[in-house]
């Protein structure tokens, strides 16, 4: 449990947000050309990092906007919050 600084609304309790999983997984540009292995990679395989992870969040009980977050999953400390349109910060 932690406080998230929504880029649109400011600081709110984490229970207002829903987690959207690992960020920056690009949807395949040519879905019809993909092999089963590539589909599995896109749909299911996750880094599931213990440490600094880039992830998507949604302010579900607030502005309902999606944004990205950099969080250390080993201690839940948030390193950065940035909008979908912005480039990820370098760690």
């Amino acid at each position: 449990m932690f406080i998230i600084n929504c880029p649109y609304c400011g600081k709110r309790d984490q229970s207002e947000f829903s987690a959207g999983g690992e960020a920056h997984i690009e949807r395949p540009k040519q879905p019809t050309e993909l092999s089963d292995d590539q589909w599995a990679e896109f749909l299911f395989m996750r880094k599931n990092i213990k440490g600094v992870q880039f992830e998507r969040w949604n302010h579900a009980h607030g502005c309902r906007k999606w944004f990205n977050m950099v969080r250390d999953t080993s201690n839940d400390k948030i390193h950065a919050v940035y909008k979908m349109s912005e480039k990820p910060p370098k760690e």
Binding site: M1, S15, G21, N48, I49, E55, T73, S74, N75, D76
Partner: peptide, 9 residues
């Protein structure tokens, strides 16, 4: 959400 903290909300 993903977390390794062994705490929970």
């Amino acid at each position: 959400y993903v977390s390794y903290t062994q705490k929970g909300s």
